[in-house]
Design a protein around this nucleic acid. Structure first.
Lengths: 254, 254
DNA sequence: TTCACATAATACCAAAAAAATACCATTTAC
DNA sequence: GTAAATGGTATTTTTTTGGTATTATGTGAA
């Protein structure tokens, strides 16, 4: 995408634009352009060389102006590709995204968390997985099951299903599924989860060390790419009190 | 079929044609030609090698331009045969409805079909709808329920849920939901459906005029945009024999 | 003065995208 | 069946773009 250089970077505007060093003036112009919405989230800045030539300053000066905005998280640089306006991350989003991490959740309650793997494998998708992840019958799905343990007490069973396209080999996952997906450039930006109460069946109750029929907290989560494509489907069963609500989770980019 | 290469791909038009990489310019030319009707549906594009030679670029550049248009469904490639302008989407949509349309399905069995609306309304999404359609809690969903009647015998109950984003006002739907979505440029290109048997509950059995507990055919369908985004979620309950399978429907582009 | 430091310019490095080349696989015509 | 035509793909080269080290300059404080 090509910006109108003159509107933001014209030398006249710079020379007349307030006080201080050149790079500060440039930074103010950029900051303003983003704030006003002249540069929208996702937009590419012109190449540094173009800005420099247009504003009649050296490229390093341009870079210095951009440096500050990158440090503030307003801009994002990608080597060899360009500089882009970052996506704003709201506080609500940050708060909600914390809900997905078992480890952090336990830490907030003053517990130490670990987990034991029950299963990692690649399978033909079940009808549910086909429906939810939008898979064809001849594709594969990676399944990961683990027992979540807090303070040496088993607390939850977690079953994750990921399209094989995004995670061909589940054995590479050691701690965080999201971290592994991130490595593969798969970045879910949004998740919807349902939390409800259920009575434990024998197998689950046994693993969690509670009597059959005890109340459990069932959490189903589907996470989506920016395109709307479903990436991952996780069913978790927690020991604990019952409540029921639906939360929308937006995971901040970058 | 031979096209007039110079009209679309001449190097002069490319060098002067706007900004950006070569393949973007080429793509714009092609897009324009199809939109204006210079290339009509079914027409063959010239071979990639010819376009490349004529436009004085490499074949891979031509391919990259075509890639995008194929992804958008505007062009179709056939290995060893050629690249063609895709049929207008209405035709494609028709093929989807051929596989899922109650009316056509009944016609194929020699029955005359009609339907009675049970409900049309806009609602806050249920947990299921939020999960499946990927909706936030503060969005809306259109629900359409009807009784499908074949040869004056009630045969099925159908509940459709569509994201309000795609269908803000369900009352405008008279016969075909897909036709209405098509009007709004919403074109699902893929659907996954699950068909299974169930025992009828009292309410459904009453509507369908069968005894409580009679076997019914439950069909759940989710249709997706090309991007992978879920558009519509339909649950149908048919009278009839029982079978269970998962079907994937891909809309062929030729 | 002279040192310290911020500012700015020059020159070169590295990653990514764009484009070109060469070869493979499938379809169609004969 | 064979050969020509056509789309498919892997590899390489070139160009574009951000990253960094080095040098020069100006300004204020010891």
């Amino acid at each position: 995408m090509t910006e109108d250089l003159s509107a933001i970077f014209s030398p006249e505007r710079l020379s007349g634009g307030g006080t201080g060093p050149l790079y500060v003036k440039l930074r103010r112009r950029l900051e303003e352009a983003v704030k006003v919405g002249r540069l929208k989230h996702g937009d590419a800045l012109p190449p540094e060389r173009d800005i420099a030539e247009f504003a009649a300053v050296s490229r390093v000066t341009v870079r210095k102006a951009i440096d500050d905005l990158v440090a503030e998280g307003i801009l994002v640089r990608r080597h060899g590709s360009g500089t882009f306006v970052a996506k704003p991350v709201s506080k609500v989003e940050q708060r909600l995204s914390q809900l997905t991490s078992f480890t952090e959740d336990m830490a907030r309650r003053g517990m130490t968390a670990r987990s034991e793997w029950l299963h990692k494998g690649i399978h033909t998708p079940s009808p549910d997985e086909m429906m939810i992840l939008g898979l064809a019958a001849d594709t594969r799905v990676s399944r990961l099951s683990r027992l979540r343990i807090a303070d040496d007490q088993p607390l939850a069973i977690e079953h994750a299903s990921v399209s094989g396209e995004f995670l061909p080999d589940p054995s590479v996952v050691t701690t965080s599924l999201y971290a592994e997906l991130e490595k593969r450039q798969v970045r879910p930006v949004r998740a919807v989860q349902r939390i409800s109460a259920t009575n434990m069946k024998e197998a689950d109750a046994g693993l969690l060390g509670v009597p059959v029929g005890a109340a459990g907290l069932s959490i189903e989560r589907i996470s989506y790419l920016g395109s709307g494509r479903a990436v991952e489907f996780t069913r978790s069963l927690y020991r604990g009190d019952a409540y029921d609500f639906v939360a929308e989770l937006t995971i901040g980019a970058n």
